[in-house]
Simulated assay, not measured.
Amino acid sequence: MAETSLFQSFFLIFSGAAVLASLALYGRQPLLVAYIALGVLLGPSGLSTIDNVRLLAEMSNIGIIFLLFLLGLDMQPQALISVMRKATFVGIASCAVFLALGFTIGQLFGFSGTESWVIGMAMMFSSTIIGIKLLPTTVLHHKHLGELMVGLLLFQDFVAIVCLMILLSGNSNQLDLPQLALSFAALPLLSLFAWVTVKFLLLPLLTRFDRFHEYVFLLALGWCMGLAELAEVSGLSREIGAFIAGITLATSRISQYIALSLKPLRDFFLILFFFSLGAQFQLSMLAEIALPAVITAAAVLAFKPVVFRFLLGNQSEHKVLAWDIGFRLGQISEFSLLIAFLAANQNLIGSAASHLIQATAILTFLASSYIVVLNFPNPIAISDELRRD
């Protein structure tokens, strides 16, 4: 069979994604599940329609860079500090519990110590996409529930950044502690450089030429890519550099315009990212990881709501609100998929551990979405009583 051209690959991915995304929306499912399923269908383990998966995977990493850049842009430092004070204790305690849960599951199923720790890392996080997308907009912006949800998810994002730094410092099944120390030392220097550059160069340029929307888009893109590459050269990662680039621009009065401009570009590459994850999923591994994945997913779905209910209850939060947040955060995260992807690339985990995390993510995305849609107020509820925009 002739090699698939890049245009043909894009045609199959985005046309197929449009079809499966429509079905996912009718089924009240998160769209990223459709993208992963399409990857499995068209990739080497399925119909083998697309054969340049490695190239697409490399391109798709740009989507993660944009994701972290936009995450930084949405973090207003003052509001962030206020919200984080409320969420820090619950965030630390829950991350510790879920790290231990994932490590224990990994050990029970015979994974190595490093693989078990990575599985534990993946268990710590909840899905920002599902958590925020299934929260009514009025609750998200004006209610205590929304504040706590955002605070916990932001705290998890910070922990995820640290986990990425750890993973990107290690290879060959062991962590390079000197390199990790250098990475942490480079972080404040890079942050200081970014803050100075934004204050004395970027903000004056944006103030002077903000009428030229094309220029604003280009400057933001260049800043994101430039600091990402500088972070890579400094021994950190492009993802961390992009996050710092975003958060240093968050105080700009046109930060939200920049975010809106880049979101379509981010979504384009994120579709490629989730597609490539599915395409690299080996169906031949299902027999090996099916039982561990089902048990791990069941543990996540059972324990996360209980842990959040207990921790929030100890913070004097109302019982109903605590259960609500617990179930809304009762899955693992897109960051868990990224952790599996990076850890496998760094040779810290094997194929079985990577596929266990991916399968667990898909199962918890599906089950958690149904639980929230059927039982809590959300924008896509089947019941009129629960539907809130």
Rank of each mutant, 00 (worst) to 15 (best):
T197C: 13
F209C: 03
F269K: 03
S191Y: 15
L265C: 12
R238A: 13
I247G: 05
I247Q: 08
L291H: 02
W223A: 08
F275C: 02
A259P: 05
A287V: 07
T207G: 14
L189I: 14
I240Q: 13
L249W: 01
I289W: 00
A228S: 15
I244C: 12
A290Q: 02
L221V: 07
G235H: 05
R253I: 12
A228Y: 03
H213P: 03
K263A: 10
L230C: 14
A287T: 04
E288K: 08
E232L: 12
L260P: 01
L218G: 12
F281R: 00
A290V: 12
R238T: 07
E229D: 11
L249K: 00
K263W: 05
S276I: 01
F200A: 03
P204C: 08
A220W: 02
L286E: 00
F217Q: 08
A287C: 00
F209V: 01
G246F: 04
F281L: 05
M225E: 05
F209S: 02
S255H: 02
K199V: 05
L283A: 02
L192Q: 04
F268Q: 03
F200S: 06
E239N: 10
L270W: 04
V196F: 14
I247T: 10
F275R: 02
P264G: 10
R266W: 08
Y215R: 11
A259K: 10
R253D: 13
I271Y: 11
G222C: 12
V196C: 12
F212I: 14
W223M: 12
L262Q: 13
Q280A: 08
F212N: 15
L205D: 00
L270Q: 06
F217R: 08
G278R: 00
P264Y: 06
R253G: 12
F268Y: 05
R238C: 11
V196E: 08
I244D: 10
F268W: 03
P264M: 09
V198G: 03
G246R: 10
V233G: 06
G222M: 06
G246D: 11
K263F: 09
